[in-house]
Design a protein around this nucleic acid. Structure first.
Lengths: 345, 345
DNA sequence: CCACCGTGAGAAAACGCTTTCTCATACAAT
DNA sequence: ATTGTATGAGAAAGCGTTTTCTCACGGTGG
């Protein structure tokens, strides 16, 4: 709240100074035409010399809108959500909207309450809650409407969705390593029950069905650097020739650990990430990954929120098809005797 | 604002259901002891069955506080501010405070107005405004009090400051490359007038005075990847053997460009960054840099804001002395005939 | 010349809460 | 029995706006 020591400036002060009633000042400030030109002028001057601006709080209370949207993210440290936040913030700023941000710290049990509370302080919610259950989500969404959901599609609630198509992106990555000749794959999957993880697993299942001769094992629970780093031993123990990490963070952690152990990438093991965060191109070797335009995700989320706020039918749901960016971390598998399908040289 | 379609639930509804007056409900909700136990119970039950929670807006208006702090950052895409935002958000969440975030897009002319507007919607401002002039800052700070400033020290206004000591950090980096034997240095400086850039320049000046035999040239205006990448030609044209980039982003961009041109790092040119962002250790070669604990910066900023909000004397100002993390991107300079002080082999 | 109407400005209600003020009740003290 | 004092609850006054309602004024038409 603004300082109250120098007696907060109120609309009454302006009215007094201009010699008119409160109502007239309000009318002038809100651009009502039904005010005499001379009075308008007087009020304007009074407001300027006093340095008056209406209290957003009082306006919000009577107008029933806060000029604010809230974003719920599971982890502010995650580049994906940073990108989305940035895109959203840019869009909101363009319409003079403010952004309230809340970090749920990957705790699905907090997300709903966080969202409800944030909703009361804002005009709408942009929700990134990959780990919340479908039931919770379906129950929550009607309560916090208007809402826009990022990176998952609620089963029942009708709500605008902006997402990266993790399934198709992951399918492309699988095809990429298959084309390179890998026949023994390992997927370092993310958090159990995370929506985008389910999408990746769906791609794995489809791939398995289509390629019975290719073996894919799954190791679960890797979402960040440390997890990737810690998985190195398991990766080595499996004798997979290609490891598909849940995301770039995991891939980079794994890459670091493997390099430290003297494992050659991609000579002995190929690694892929996901997201194409700004830094993926600077690893050693540069990381093959699937590119997700996160700021655009945020921008599109804002576009839909803006439609909603203006009572318009929001634009179509959107799924960005990630593009595979082949870089140095993937290559042909090492030639070993037990390769059932040796690549033609 | 919450939905008004299903007739927003108000304190009057609870009062009616419990058969008491509004005042009593309010007293119960705010933990006043002067309410009969039986009534308290009735009110509690009514509130729960109705699912009532007081409107934060109305409370804010009458209480004069919003339970919200605002952060102004110059660029949400910059890892330094992301880290600070994260640390701050964590601290605020711990006290049930909310965080409003505004991105000034590196535009100093917007920062002041952004801060003033944000201040009116919050109880305090955490300001990262490295490029605002001292005069503007000194004028602004009293208007938005309580405020905490990150990464610069206002000349006149008395305000808590939490900062990384860029000068000492940069001095250490200079010493590091000097010790390696470099005698011809290049500083890719940041935005003219940025506070943390001035600090680095101060370190350069002191270093020059102390080491007249070492040549340091300065190239100005690099703050991100692209700038670093674009500076490659200038870097090659200067025949410096060590380049100190403004920050890790610039260093990584430069590194990428030099690698692409076939320049050996650190064989031909050594490179240092600044900040030690999470990704600096994954470049090729890993980046020598000075580590700044950005989340801690945010956490400490919150601690001071919290003191301020509670009318306490805020904790001492804090300057984190960054630590040099020597990695692969720096090494001994190449031996050339014109080296006046060839390193002993 | 009077009734009527449009124009524009002030008074007052509303937004949903907190808190002070006021008052009724009950109990202890004289 | 009567005054005094806790105790606890309701009435009402804000907090700073917007907006509806009301009304005064001056000009037009009959």
């Amino acid at each position: 709240m603004a300082r109250r020591s120098p007696e907060r400036l109120t609309i009454a002060d302006v009215a007094e100074k201009a010699g008119v009633s409160l109502s007239t000042v309000s009318r002038v400030m809100n651009g009502s035409t039904t005010v005499d030109a001379a009075l308008t002028q007087r009020v304007r001057e009074a407001a300027v010399t006093l340095g008056y601006t209406a209290s957003p709080l009082a306006r919000s209370l009577v107008l029933g809108k806060t000029q604010t949207v809230a974003v719920i993210v599971p982890d502010l440290g995650n580049p994906t959500f940073q990108g989305a936040l940035r895109g959203l913030s840019t869009g909101a700023a363009g319409e003079n909207y403010h952004v309230l941000v809340a970090d749920s710290f990957e705790d699905p049990s907090k997300e709903a309450e966080l969202a409800r509370e944030a909703r009361r302080r804002s005009d709408g919610i942009v929700l990134c809650a990959p780990r919340m259950t479908d039931d919770e989500l379906n129950e929550l969404l009607p309560q916090i409407s208007p809402a826009v959901v990022i990176n998952r599609t609620p089963t029942s609630a009708r709500v605008p969705v902006v997402a990266a198509d993790y399934r198709s992106g992951f399918a492309q990555l699988l095809a990429h390593v298959k084309d390179l000749g890998h026949r023994k794959l390992l997927f370092l999957s993310g958090a159990e029950g995370s929506a985008s993880n389910r999408d990746r697993l769906a791609a794995v299942d489809a791939f398995r069905a289509a390629n019975p001769n290719i073996e894919i094992s799954v190791l679960t629970g890797s979402v960040n650097f440390a997890d990737g780093y810690a998985s190195a031993d398991d990766v080595i123990a499996s004798d997979a020739t290609a490891v598909l990490a849940f995301n770039d963070l995991v891939a980079m952690g794994l890459l670091g650990a493997l390099t430290a152990r003297g494992v050659d990438v991609p000579g002995e093991v190929s690694i892929t990430g996901f997201d194409d965060i700004q830094f993926a191109q600077y690893t050693t070797p540069p990381l093959t990954t699937a590119a997700v335009p996160t700021p655009e995700l945020g921008a599109q989320a804002w576009a839909r929120m803006w439609d909603l706020l203006n009572g318009r039918q929001p634009a179509y749901n959107l799924a960005f098809g990630p593009l595979v960016v082949p870089r140095g971390s993937t290559g042909r598998p090492p030639k070993t005797g037990d390769d059932p399908h040796p690549a033609a040289t």
